[in-house]
Design a binder for these strands. Structure first.
Lengths: 375, 375
DNA sequence: TACAAATGCGGTACCGTTACCACATTAGAA
DNA sequence: TTCTAATGTGGTAACGGTACCGCATTTGTA
C-alpha cells in the first residue's frame, strides 16, 4: 500500500516542524525590532523552565502554582522585563481594558472636566480611555459604536444625548456594557448618572427671590436635552404661582454664550424691568452677563444672574457668577466607576443616580437684602 | 513494527480533527453571544465559497482577486454584516489604528481645544484616540508609555513637557513613532510643532508700546516649559533697550489664574506706576485682570493687559482680553497629521514646525492713542 | 511553439495570550 | 490500605486575522 510511505513522510515532517519551531523561538528575538527583544510569555516560560500554561496561571492567578515555581517565574519576568501583550490578551479573552467616552465636544468646558474625572478613575482601575466627539449627531455616534465594537472595547460611557433605542439594544445584545450621563435610552440595561436638575432650578429661583428679585426670567436650553427640560420645569414650578409670572419671561437659548446673549436682549426688550435671570447653564449665563454689560446694566445691583453647571469659568467673569454647581468631577468619577463595576460583573443592578447640586453664591446675585456679605 | 499502528491512529486523528474543526466553524455561531452571531472572515469565506486568504486579500487590496470573486465576497460581507476584527488585525499586523495623546490635563482649556483637533483629524484618517493626563509628572507619563507599548499603539503625541531622553530613545528603538508639542527631547526622531513664542512676545510688547504704555511688566510661566522661556526672552529683548526697563518688572507666575493674581499684586507693590502687563499665558492674564479689578484699577484705561494663547475664555472676561493667539486647532490638526504620516511611513523627515501667532486686539488694551477703534 | 510573466486562489504558520483538558503527584479520609 | 480530593504542571486548540509560499491557469512575447 502506498499510504505507508505517505505516513512515514508525515511523521518526519511533524518531527522537523517541532524542531524548527523550537529553533525559531530560540533565536527569533535576534531578528526582531532591530535586535531589541520584546519578550513573550514563551520566553519567560523557557527561561523559568516551565510551560506557558504555568506562567499564564501565575500571571492571572488562575489555578495552582507552586510557590517555588512562582519565584522562578517572577525572576524570569524581571530579567526579561516581560509585560503581557494586551492585544493578544484581548483577542484571546475578548477583554481589552479599554473604555470609551463618547461626548458631544471635548473642548466644551463641562465635558473636559468630566473627561478628566473619567480618565482619573479609569487609570486607577487599570483601564485606558478612548474618546470621541459626537457633536450631538447620531451618525457620528453610530460610527464610533461600530469602530468600538470591532476593537473589543470593554464598555462605553455616553455623555452624548443621541443614543438611540436600537443602538442600545444592539449593545445589549452584543454584551457591551454601557452607562449614560443625564439620559439613557431606557431605564433598563444602563445605569444613568445625573444631577438634580429640577431641584437645582428651584434652588436658583429661590435664591434669586431671597436676594430680592421680583421678576425673574429664564433662558432655557435645547429641549431635546433632558437637563434643559428639567431645569425649565423647575423654574416653572417655582414661579407660576407668583403674581408677576408670565410665560413671556421664558426665552430659548442654545446652551452657548451667543445664545445667552441674544436671549437676554430679547428678554430685556419685552421686559425692561426684569431684575433676575436664571440661565439654563453657565455659558448662557455668561452670555447674559455680557449682554447686560453691553447695555450698561449693572449686574448684581440691578439684575441678578444665576447660572447652572459650576464650570471653572464662572470664577473668572466680572462679576463672578452665582451658579448651581453640579458635582462634575464626582459625576465623572461615579459614572466610570459604575461602568467598570458593570464590566467586571460586580454591579448588582442598573439604576438612576441623582446627585445633589449646590448653590454657589457669588457677586452676580449680590443685590439688596442679599444673603451675601459684601463685594 | 509497532509504529505502523501508531501512524494509522495519527491519520485517523487528523481526519477527525479536520472534520470536527469544520463542524465547529459551521455551528459555532449558534452558541455564541446568546445566539447572536458575530461573523468572522471564515464565515465570509465559507459563504462566498472561497478561502480566507482570498477574502483577506480582498479586504486589504493586497494581491490578486478576480472581479467576479470580488462581487461574491462583497455580497457575503454585506449579508453577514461582517467587519474585520481590529484586535486580531492588531495582533497579526502589530497595527491597531490607535494613537495616544499624552497631555498635562485635559480639563485645561488649551489642551481640550487641542484634543478636539487631534481627534477630528485622527477620526478622518480612521484612527481612534486614547488620552492620558500626565499632570506634568514624568512618572505618570512613563506609566502611560508602558501601557501603550503593551497595547500596540501606533504612535504617540506628547503635549506634555516631561518626555525624557531615555523614553524617547526607547520609543525609537521599539519603532513607535511619536511627535511633540512645543518641545521634544531631541531634534532627531521626532517632529515638533510649536508656535512662534518669541515673536509673539515681541508682538505683544510692541502692541502695548503702540497703545501708549511706558512701563510694561511681564509675568512669566514655569521656566522648565520652553514656551514660557521663549516668551520671557522675547519680552526681555524688546524692552531691555528702553530706558524705563528694570529686571524688577519681571515676576514669576505658574501659568494659572491664582499665580497671575499674586504676581500682579507683587508687581503693583514694587511698581505702582506700571501701565502695561504682558502675561505669559491667558490664564495668568485673567489673574492679572482679577487682581487689578479688586484693587479698583481700571483695566485698559490705566493698565493695559495682554495675554498669550488665545483660549476661548479670553472672550468672556470683562474687559475682553487682548491676546497673542496661537492657532491651537491648527497645531493639533498639524501634529496629528504629522504623526499619522509618520506611522504610515509617508513622512520624509522629522523637523520643527513653527506656526505664526496672531495679535487679537480687544478691550483690555484699549488705552490712549490706541490702534483700536472704540469700546 | 515555447517559455516567462501575470493573474488568481488555497493552505497554513504565526501573532501572544488564555482556557480547557489530561495527567501526575501528594495529602487526607474511610 | 485504598480511594478520593487537592495540588501542580504541561499540551494545545482557539481567538480572528495576515502574509508567505506554492500551485494552477491565463496571457504576452520572442
Amino acid at each position: 500500500m502506498r499510504y505507508r510511505y505517505h505516513i512515514r513522510i508525515m511523521l518526519y515532517i511533524s518531527v522537523i516542524k517541532a524542531y524548527y519551531k523550537d529553533l525559531w523561538y530560540r533565536y527569533r528575538n535576534l531578528f526582531r525590532r532591530g535586535g531589541r527583544a520584546i519578550s513573550t510569555i514563551r520566553d519567560v516560560a523557557k527561561l523559568a523552565g516551565v510551560s506557558v500554561s504555568t506562567v499564564s496561571r501565575y500571571l492571572n492567578k488562575s489555578g495552582y502554582v507552586n510557590s517555588e515555581t512562582e519565584q522562578t517565574i517572577k525572576y524570569a519576568i524581571d530579567k526579561l522585563k516581560y509585560a503581557p501583550n494586551q492585544v493578544a490578551r484581548g483577542l484571546a479573552g475578548k477583554k481589552t481594558n479599554t473604555i470609551a467616552l463618547i461626548l458631544p465636544d471635548i473642548s466644551n468646558l463641562f465635558f473636559s472636566d468630566l473627561a478628566r474625572a473619567v480618565e482619573d478613575v479609569a487609570a486607577t482601575y487599570g483601564y485606558t480611555v478612548i474618546f470621541g466627539n459626537s457633536d450631538d449627531q447620531a451618525v457620528k455616534e453610530k460610527r464610533y459604536i461600530e469602530t468600538l465594537k470591532q476593537k473589543y472595547i470593554d464598555g462605553i460611557i455616553f455623555a452624548s444625548n443621541t443614543l438611540g433605542h436600537d443602538d442600545a439594544e444592539m449593545l445589549t445584545k452584543l454584551g457591551i456594557p454601557f452607562v449614560c450621563l443625564d439620559r439613557g435610552p431606557s431605564e433598563e440595561n444602563s445605569s444613568i448618572v445625573r444631577s438634580k436638575n429640577k431641584e437645582g432650578a428651584i434652588m436658583a429661583v429661590q435664591h434669586l427671590l431671597d436676594v430680592g428679585c421680583r421678576k425673574i426670567a429664564h433662558i432655557y436650553g435645547p429641549q431635546h436635552l433632558i437637563t434643559a427640560k428639567e431645569r425649565l420645569i423647575g423654574y416653572e414650578q417655582s414661579v407660576q404661582i407668583l403674581d408677576w409670572y408670565s410665560p413671556t419671561l421664558i426665552e430659548p437659548g442654545d446652551f452657548r454664550i451667543a445664545g445667552g446673549m441674544k436671549a437676554t436682549d430679547r428678554l430685556l426688550e419685552r421686559h425692561p424691568d426684569i431684575d433676575g435671570i436664571f440661565a439654563g447653564n453657565d455659558l448662557m449665563a455668561i452670555g447674559a452677563l455680557k449682554a447686560l454689560h453691553r447695555k450698561g446694566i449693572p449686574v448684581g445691583r440691578q439684575v441678578a444672574v444665576c447660572g447652572f453647571d459650576g464650570i471653572q469659568t464662572t470664577e473668572i467673569t466680572v462679576p463672578e457668577l452665582t451658579t448651581i454647581a453640579q458635582p462634575i468631577y464626582d459625576m465623572g468619577a461615579l459614572i466610570s466607576r459604575l461602568l467598570i463595576k458593570k464590566i467586571e460583573g460586580k454591579l448588582e443592578e442598573d439604576r438612576l443616580y441623582e446627585l445633589d447640586v449646590k448653590l454657589i453664591v457669588r457677586d452676580s446675585t449680590f443685590r439688596r437684602q442679599g444673603t451675601n456679605e459684601q463685594a
